[in-house]
Each structure stands twice: as C-alpha cells, then as structure tokens.
Amino acid sequence: MATDSAPLPARRLIKEVLGRGDYAIIGEIVEPRSKVLDLGCGEGELLEWLMDHKQVTGAGVEISRERVQLAIARGVSVYQGDIDQGLADYPDQAFDYVILSQTLQQTLKPLKVLREMLRVGRRVIVAFPNFGHWRVRWAHLVSGRAPRTGLFPYEWYDSPNVHFLTIQDFEAFCVEQNWVVERHYFLSGNHRVKSMPNLRAEVAVYLVRAKHP
C-alpha cells in the first residue's frame, strides 16, 4: 500500500484546514468512497473533510451535545452518545474504517472499545499521544511528579486521560491480541518521525485489522 496515495495539495489542505498531523495521516489512509465511523468525532471536521474530498459515507459518535449540534450543522451524521456503549447497535463489519483519534487514552475500557471497533469495522485507525516521548520521561524524572507537557498538559486530578500508553505498549498489545498492524505513522508536530519513535514521536497513528482465520 502506497502511503503517498493522496495528492500533495490535498495533504497540504487537510493540514491547513484541520491543523492536526494525525488528521492528515488519516486523510491519507482512508480510501475514496468508503464507509467511515469516527468515534469522539468532535465537531465533525475530519468527517466533513473526508466527505468532501474522499466522498466517504461518514458517521460519528460524540458525547458533547454542543459538539454534536455543530457537527450536524455541517451535515455530518453524528449520534449523541458515549463511545463505550455507542457501538453496540451497529452490525458486524458495518464500516470500512473506524477511527479513534486521540481518545483511546480517555476510554475507560480500551480493550473493549478496540474489540468493538474491530467488530463493526474492517479496519481500525487509532491515533494516540505517546506517553513514552522523551519530554514526558524527562518531565517525570526531573520533577518527580506526574508529568505535564504540551502533549499531556493536565494536572493529575483533572486529566481526561485515564490510561497512559506508549508506542511500545500498543505494539505489544496488538501482538497479544492477535491484531495485524497494516501501517503505522509516527509524528512529532506535523513532521514524520523515522527513527526511535517511542522516544521521539508525540503521536502515533495505527491502521489495524483483526487477523483473518
């Protein structure tokens, strides 16, 4: 699979419009005219972009009523509900891709969520902040306190993050669960990280599928 399938102008645009490196990667991964479910879709910016540029059929789940309203006002089919219970209605393999962008660390039961995602989707795209980044390690080592960095800016008591994982953790997890990593991307800001991702990448994006029998 070529990672350069999206034409350059499109990639530049998605960065300009969405301003998030992981969104740009997702824009590259998703095949045209596919069915996409975005969990924790916020105001539906990514889905709108995918609908406009990849002619996808999009659906989203978002817990905040305000954000659901904004997403629907963009014409995106978003359902107000939480991720942990929001997938149960969907039949098996209803989507080509199920996206979980930067919220895996906020779900109460990540394994349950990922399994559900792999049930309703043929492929899963997961983006998460890497807790193994050197700045996080450094902050913890030097301060002796729960690390606070640009990527993890919260105090321990008001952080929405409840699970902290590194790139190595996720890789091991996939092996353990018998999931196939089809592609991965490591980012620092909007730049690709080529070496030592567990130290140098702030965000990891994985394209995962269940192993076929």
Binding site: T57, R65, V76, Y79, Q80, D89, P91
Partner: peptide
C-alpha cells in the same frame, strides 16, 4: 428509532436538544 436505523447500517444523525 435511531437504534433501529443504526442496527441496519442506515445513515442517521441524532441530537437531543435542551
């Protein structure tokens, strides 16, 4: 209604307004 639509993979947006 929404749940039934989702179970059949139909395109549905849902919002409960305050």
């Amino acid at each position: 209604i929404v749940s039934a639509l989702r179970s059949r993979n139909r395109d549905v947006a849902y919002c409960e307004l305050s």
